[in-house]
Every structure is written in structure tokens, then in C-alpha cells.
Design a protein around this nucleic acid. Sequence first.
RNA 1: UGCCUGGUGGUGUAAUGGUAGCACAGCAGAUUCUGACUCUGCUUGUCUAGGUUCGAGUCCUAGCCGGGCAGCCA
Length: 587
Amino acid sequence: MNDTADKPLNFIQQIVEDDCRAVKWGTWKASDASRPGSAQTAGSPRVHTRFPPEPNGYLHIGHAKSILLNFGLAQKFGGRFNLRFDDTNPAKEEQEYVDSIKADVAWLGANWHGPNGGGLFFASDYFDRMYDWAVELIRKGKAYVCELSADEVSKRRGTPTAPATSPFRDRPAEESLRLIQEMKEGTHPNGAMTVRAKIDLASPNFNLRDPVMYRILHEAHHNTGSKWCIYPMYDWAHGFEDSIEGITHSICTLEFENHRPLYDWFIDSVNEGRSADKKIHHPQQVEFAKGLLTYTILSKRNLLRMVQEGTVKGWDDPRMPTISGFRRRGYTPEAIRTFWEEIGVTKTESVIDLGRLENAIRTDLNRRAPRAMGVLRPLKVTIENWPEGKVDWLEAQNNPEDPAAGSRTVPFTGTLFVERDDFMENPPKRFFRLAPGREVRLRWAYFVKCERVVKDAATGEVTELRCTFDPATRGGDSPDGRKVKATLHWVSADLGVPAEVRLFDRLFKVEDPGARTGEFMDDLNPISLEVVRAMIEPSLAEAKVGDKVQFERLGYFCVDRDAKPGALVFNRTVTLKDAWSRVAREE
RNA sequence: UGCCUGGUGGUGUAAUGGUAGCACAGCAGAUUCUGACUCUGCUUGUCUAGGUUCGAGUCCUAGCCGGGCAGCCA
């Protein structure tokens, strides 16, 4: 979110700017600035942000907001951005997720090793230090080992007005020190005991009712292997991760507002009794609202379920709202960035119209995607007066929005395909395309006129159009000035190439999946994917995976990674806006 | 029920006590070798009630409505 100067600052940028003005977080040292390629300058105010994902799933479009916000801040204020894995729960975390997250963050352009990069980190690398702090808190009488079962803790949680209880709260520090040591050494089974902070069992903020700091988890970790069998809880760990890395602004989402007093308490408790030079850094937390999307589900748990149950074909299924899904679908990082910039950053929970995202990718691709012609549902057209065997290579502009994109040639022959939807035997008033007796233009080619319709005798289905062309209209202009009301895309039946095209629709039928029944799967769109055999112009025969193209009048498409030489596969990224479809509904 | 938090057109936002503006969507039109793009115009809003003030979306009080929290998840 690296805005232009004239755009008003969002509230977080405002906070950071104010802090910089006040030099609240100190300045970059000469050694920081001297790092090769560094965007930090010695003496300028420090801004250090981070994106701290848990590697327990793939990143989705909502995470992109946070990544772009954090990285954008580092860029805007000449600071640094860390990518840090919050890997404190080996039961749910996997290396596959670490790898995918790195790929996605990099793709979005948040370069954690670049000029504004602070580096790549793992919370699990801090486990030793965190353990030492826990021991320190026990010594200070600020934490204890509790042998209540999870069930018991839950039962004793209390109510907003009645306090929680634990019979182990006042055990001697020596006893807790012995037990935490045993926990660490693996003496006790999962769930036997926990380390708890001794804060306030009666607090109206439940996060302060002696929260668990460590639990026993005999589980291998993707980074630390079998070194640990106790793992820190998120709340205990998170503030320290930011502290250790010197994060200035710990930006997180609204649901952590209630946790802030806890993070403050942990750091203050470590610092208590320490001399000024031994105190650990205390970052400032700032909360912002997530952005939800209509027709979309973003909870990692539910996305995982769709993957596991085979509702979609993996995390990067082009219908998924994951970063990798959007990438495969043909979205660009620029479009995603523009989208979130337009949405802004606030503390108001909002549901964003999915159309906004589609609009962003259309705008981007309109500017940069070369045009081509492809017929999704081919209808055969025979040009009756075309010279037998003749091939006419016609010049076509690659992108009317960008003259520099140049031109290509497309072959016109006696047998063509046009889109089935572009012909109607009994057209309604506002239908401008082909119909019996009507003349239209074929893009970049000729005016053609429909003379006769051939139907399947048995089904009555239109199987072929017999047309004539006007040789004087070569290139698409009529010397006598006569007009046609439509220009159609087309492909030579003889020289076109077949391709599989995957047409995606939204995954859910309703704006708020699950709102009706409580089960989001009830709102699945049964036809979110349609596969067609298309015919495309030969210039596309050598298209490479990831190539993006506008099939004129249809939409933007990209070559899927399933494509093989001679067997092209295209994904439809998004359709073009289509005024006719609205008219058609009214007709 | 306790604590935290938020309410500006259909949607997302701006206005930092001084003309409620922008974008998307919608509607109408122009243009067009993509019913796209582009351009023009239009419709629609400060949760409510009091108060402070020359002046309130903004400050104060009370209420209303929404979101979050009571995992050994993050």
C-alpha cells in the first residue's frame, strides 16, 4: 500500500507518520543503513513491521491486505519488513505451508530480503529465550505450574462477573520451577499440566484470567524437530517475537484488541526489576479490520475442509480465494494491490463487494493483456462465395489500448467458427448479432451475411450457417460507408487450434455463505466450473503457462499449468463486462 | 450478562469543529471494428435523542444497533 502523495493517509499510516515525527522508536544506525542495497538511511526514524503467519494453511486474499499494509509501511517510511512464521503449534503446522507462504508473499512483492526487507524469521528460533523468560516470571512469583486438566480449567473459567479459580495458584515458586523443568524434559504426558501467568482471575477481560503460557505437546516440529515437548501459547509468544525483532508497530486484526493488555503485561513483567539497559523492547500494537468478501469464505479452517473433502482440487484451485488460487486463475499482484489500496484500512468491519476485485483485475488486464480470438462454443460457418482453398492472412491489432503491442495476422478461410451465442434464429429487438438475412462484421476481416441456416433434421438444432462475404470489406471497413451493428470474433475452422477452456464461476451462490443454515457447504454453487472445448486462433498455439490474453468480447484468460505442448488449457480469469447479458435477461 | 470495539448512500471510503466529497455498483446518454475500454449526466448517506458552539459527521451525555472475547488454536 504505497500510495501516491495526494491520497489521504489511512489511520495506521497516520500513526506511523506521527511516531516518526516524534522519533518515538529511535533512528536507524549507520550500520543498518550500510547494508548493501538498504533503503534505510542513518538517523531517520525507525519503522519496522512484519507479517507473522502461522504455517497451518495457504494464504488467502485477506492475508494479502495485511502483507501489503505491513510491507507498504516499511516502503513508505524507509523502514523494514520481516516475514516471520508464528510456528508455535506443531500439531497443525507443516513445511508445505511454510513453502507456499514464502512463494505467495514473494509473488505479492513483499520482498523480505530487498531494500525494505528485514529478513526471514521463525518464532521457533526464539523458544530458548521464551523459556528463560517463563522461568524468570516464575521466580518473580508471576507464573506457576497448574495441574488442572483442560476440562477443569474450562469449568473453573468463571463468568464475566464470577472469577476463575485454580488450586495451584499459590504453590511455591520452587515447586513450579521443578515442574516446568520436568515438563521441558518430557517427564509428563500431554495435558498433565501447564504453565500459567498469575495475573487476575477476576478480570473482566478473560485473557487476563491466568492465561496458559506453555502446554505439553509431545510432537515433532518442522523447524526444531524433537528438541521441545512443551510449546509456548500464541499469546505468550507473540509479543516477544515482535520484541526480539525490534518491531515498532505490531499490526494485527481487531480480534486481538482484547489481548493487548496481556502482551503489555508479559513484557512489563519481564522488564520489572531490570535496569534500563536490560529491559526488552516494547512494540506498539495497532489493530485494523479484516476485509471480507461477498460470495467468499476466508476462514482457513473452512478452506482446509474444502480441500480435504475434494470440493475443490487443492489450495490453488482457481476458484479458491487463496493467493495461489488467484495467481493460477490469472490475477496479477498489481491488481490485488490496487484492490486493497482502493478499499483502504480502517477499524470498521466490512464486507467488500466481490465485484471490486473483479474490477481491479479487469482494469489491469485491459491495459496489459494482448487480444486474441477464441470461440468457446463453436458454430460452423461456411462462406459460400469464398474461393476454394484460399487462405487470407489478415492483420489484427494486438491491443487497441496499447499501440506499442503491435499486430499479428490471423487466417481467414472458407470454413469458420463463430460463437453460438452470436447467432439467433429469431432475434429479439435489441439483439444486434447474426440472424438470418443479417450482415455483421467479422473482426479484422470481412462483412458477412447469413444466407441460410442448416439444422439437424432430428433435433432441430442449428448446426451450420451458410454465409456470403463482401470482398470489398477486407480489413473490416466498407468502402460504401454502410454500417453493421455488430462485430463478431471468429476462428478459422481449418487453421484454428483446439484448446480446453475452464470457465469458473463463484464458489457460492449467496453473498454470505452459511448465513442461512449455519453450514457454508449448503450454499455451494454446483456449477462453479464448466469445461469447454474451444477453438482459438493459431497465433496462440505456442502460448506458455501463465500467459495472459483477452479473448475478444469474452474475457481475460491465462494458460493453466495443466497445459501440455499441443494440448492448451486456459483458465478464464474474469469475463468482460457484458451489457448484452443484462438486456438479454430483460428480453 | 461483564469487558473491548465499531456505526457516513446499495458497497468501500474521505472530510483531523467550517460547502458531506471520491470510487465501485445502478440508471440515462455519447462514442466505438470488442454490447469491452473511454466520456458525460443522474439517483442515493452522517444510527437515535438531547447538549456544547456563530457553526457538529467530528466534541459531551444517554440510548439503539453491529462485531469480538470465556481453546492447553492463532
